[in-house]
Design a binder for these strands. Sequence first.
DNA 1: CGGTAGAATATTTTT
DNA 2: TATTCTACCG
Length: 745
Amino acid sequence: MQTESNKSNNIQTNTLNPEQLAAVRNIAGPVMIIAGPGSGKTRVITERIAHLINSGVDSQNILALTFTNKAAKEMKMRIKSLTNNEDSESIWMGTFHSIFARILRQEAAVIGYSNNFTIYDNEDSNKIIRRIIKDWNLDKDIYNPKFIFSRISFMKNNLISPEDYNIHDTLKEQDKRNKRVDFLKIYQKYCQTCRDSNAMDFDDLLINTHKLFQENSSIISYYQEIFKYILIDEYQDTNKAQDKIIKQIGTKYKNVCIVGDDSQSIYSFRGANINNMLNFKKFYKNVKEFKLEQNYRSTQNIVNAANSLIAYNKHKIDKTIFSKNEQGNKIRLFEYSNGREEGAKISSMIEKSILKGRKKSDHAILYRTNSQSKIIEDGLRKKGIHYRIFGGLSFYQRKEVKDVMAFLKLILNHDDDESLIRIINYPTRGIGNTTINKIRNKAEEKNKTIWQTLKSDDFHEIELTNGAKKNVSFFINIMKDLFQKINNNIFEIMELLMDRTGIIRRLKDDPTADNINRLENIGELINSTKLFSMRKNNNHLIDFINEISLDENKLNESITEDHVSLMTIHQSKGLEFSHVYILGLENGLFPSQRNMRERKMIEEERRLFYVAITRAINSVVLSYAISRFQFGTINKTEKSLFIDEINYFFIEKFKQTHEPKIGGHNLMNPPKIDNRKLKKIKLNSQNTFFRKGLEVGQSIIHNVFGKGEIRKIDNSDGNQKITVFFSAGGEKILLTKFAKFEILT
DNA sequence: CGGTAGAATATTTTT
DNA sequence: TATTCTACCG
């Protein structure tokens, strides 16, 4: 895999083309760079920043906002080598969220937070909302927690506070029509809960920054002076709050450079609005506009196919993307009878490609939804092709990891009720729902946070059974001891934490496959705290939590073995691969069911498809299945409407199956076949897993237990088990599916 | 209170 | 199918 930043070797010469050069050199005043896919955008950005520094601009006066922290890191490295200047380290470069979190920690007191505030992720937010709805006995169908959360998020991204909502008739009308009359109350309560817990959710990082700047003229002028030069990548995917903040900061010096491609805007579900980009020229006068239209990445066929597709979108900036690379092969389209066949056939295509001498990492498989990864995984595994799935559940989102992290968060911020509730009975120590609710009610009554309640005399006012009281006291004591350690290094905190809570002991006592896996993950977390605490600076608890809350750190980034990449199209943004496979081109899946109703939404899905195609350097393979197994039933599907939008001149169609087509269905509602009777026969689709090359007598090294020797290999059921004797820990049975180890001999 | 079995329910995409 | 929720029993 390559990211755009290190793809510059694709640019034929070492020099920039005239348009790129102009975009790099024009550093004063507002600039808009429209950068088509593969147009050397990242190179232009890095060169531009390097040019700023070489022209004498102080690194500390540059604000560069990227879409991911990973992109920021890579760009920083390139800028450092371009400028040969150590100072380039001090550029303010990162995502909106991480940069603003940094500012907010600095200025927290001004807006009524303390600087150790917790950052809640979506799971935390959802739990809070679910609790509010439950506490108030609201109808779960009308007040669907997920929906409520996304609506709250929508409000926040559009800077609509509860007060604003209240005077916003159309919004109120909408909710009234849907009988969600209590939406405002929930919104208020949710905000209150976060604030009381000294916590911010992702959206709060934006709106609180906006508020901070809005209400404090001295602070905004301070940052206007700091951020004299502003550059924002992927501007097409900014939301209103982000756009406004940039306007707040940029209005003084107006050295604002936005980079983006309206055709690649794919985050409207998160509040992103292309109009931010389209209206840029209206807000600032004399905007210099540069269009990077030459695609250095893909073959002409791929670029032409993508162009013919995106031409169906009405809402877009006029531009002509072209390629001078070789013509290349046509895009290939395959029809399969079902998802399983799709997975198998695509896998064997990749296998053949690898046999031709290509690297696995030249291949990427892209899909619309995370759940589609499973079928292709099965296919690849059968062929023994290494792959890596990006995204899905990240390491830090795993339950057991979050549980341990909740202890750390609570140590840092005692008012973090969400974390406290999460761990008061983890591992189970006899504190059930009844007890927790009694405690919560008392805290509510006293208008205190839970920890404040527990540590004060109020605790004794709660009517608890003796047993419950003892258990809660036990928890309080654990936490008091841990709180003492707040300034120790994290590894020491972790050791005490494990010792006092017995998390590891408990898991070891009950070594089910799940628990072994959990144990390994916690082991990995402990390892990472060890590494973290060995850092020279920024090695405190707050730094650790900060990085984990906002960095999409995958922790297993270090996998070096050659592998095929599997990811959603959203995650492929900014990446490129020689050979790209796009699965599941079916109406209802891609474009997704929900987005098929509105033209605006279909345009977004089309942009998503455009992004997918333009990831490819040499070849694109598309596929769809005429039936798909989903939710335990087989559904007939129809090929995606996007397929025929690609000009036939650039695409080649293959049919693998000859089943008669059932015609005449309503496009919006593909017929469903009731499969309940068939289900009883149940295909034996057990997930088998065997690790290759294992032998009795081999010595291995395990990430938790260390060195050991294989004593026995058990392939009897679908899950391969090995018995290993560890010099440190004695004999253990491991499931090779989960165990993390390497063969030594 | 904790564990579990069986029922109900859910699928976009993510900082 | 995979995950979450609910009801019930020890």
